[in-house]
Design a binder for these strands. Sequence first.
DNA 1: TATATTTTAATAGTAATACTATTATTTTTG
DNA 2: CAAAAATAATAGTATTACTATTAAAATATA
Lengths: 224, 224
Amino acid sequence: MEELLKNLQIRVNENLYLKDPESSSLGKKIIENSIILIEEIGFEGFTFKKLGDRIQSPEASIYRYFENKHKLLLYLTSWYWSWKEYQLVIKTYSIPNPQKKLDLILEIITQSVETDSNFSHINEVKLNTIVINENSKSFLTKEVDEDNKQGYFLIYKRLINRIKDIILEVNPNYPFPSSLASTIVDGSLHQHFLKKHFPTITDCNKVVSPTDFYKNLVFKTLDV
Amino acid sequence: MEELLKNLQIRVNENLYLKDPESSSLGKKIIENSIILIEEIGFEGFTFKKLGDRIQSPEASIYRYFENKHKLLLYLTSWYWSWKEYQLVIKTYSIPNPQKKLDLILEIITQSVETDSNFSHINEVKLNTIVINENSKSFLTKEVDEDNKQGYFLIYKRLINRIKDIILEVNPNYPFPSSLASTIVDGSLHQHFLKKHFPTITDCNKVVSPTDFYKNLVFKTLDV
DNA sequence: TATATTTTAATAGTAATACTATTATTTTTG
DNA sequence: CAAAAATAATAGTATTACTATTAAAATATA
């Protein structure tokens, strides 16, 4: 299973880049180091100039791969959600019981990434931190409708729809399966953030995880 | 009740501004027009230069009131949450039944603002849109821990704690009252956003509201 | 293998942004 | 009414986000 993940290449919407960063060593350096740098200094403080200094290339070279830093963020978050989707599909494929399937999905989606798979230039632990801190900035913009039309959020929406389908398998009469699915995905990122920065307004801590909260919430809500 | 709200002045953390915008007519113009302009062009596109052009004052004059646009955003979102807190406290004060109280709270928090109260220079309908689109940007920054230490999020956290208290009144054995409360506040903003921009991953639309979804979710979860 | 073609990267810019120091003006107070 | 204090306007600067042009390297073709 881990082996399988190592060999497949995660693909994102082609319009997110000008030149495929997977196609050259400079491109891979851009991805690898942008993850390290954004995790370190945050998306607002991140600039192509600083990334260029880090990888010893002029910022103009980075502009040959990505139109701007927002497109790069969309690339990184798309990669992350695509990676999560693969895990979800492969790990739940052989499970016939819908409840067990949903239980596993909740673990895959709401647990934080603890170990780097080391199969590429992408550090998944740091990328997970970036998604917690920056994912909502990828769509909370004035350009969201255009970006959506371009298909930049297809993977994210497909993942949520897959979760919705399993929710309906567990309880076909539940009236809000899409809202519950989107709440799980977005809400668990939020609980991870609160755990780290606002511990007084969450019950999540060293012993209680967002997964515990969401498993209770989802199965209570679905009457199972 | 509406009368009461008209007469009280909403106060926010004093360190959010250099000079109190409520203390001068230029200050009030800054607040009034920043709400209109941010709602119109989004927080990323918003600059003090553009606001200055709009109110016919140089940007340097705006810098005498707010250190930067992030502090202004914190001012606006604090104002909004303080306004919501007043509604919550006053409207639920006389209700003894915890379940009815929580039901009303869910309406106050999850319903979108439909009418401008007209009692001030602040347009609450537009401010509600700003909160839906920009609230998470107020804390998803590298400076969040410093800002938190400065007390900039006290009102927001106090509001969530009030909701938590009522959740515990409804079901004293529920193990995740803080996480549920923060999920309601943040999650309902998210559902409003999805309704507008990503309708395929929410069940909310013209007939189903985020309030319907959250009432079902909360009362199922709390076993009542 | 030599040359043409294409790809890729570096240089050198510009307009806009985010902010600050200084000066001018207005308002308040004794 | 003059002095002091508060407020606003002018004129800057460093950084950011990006682009046009040129140079160098890699690849394809004769």
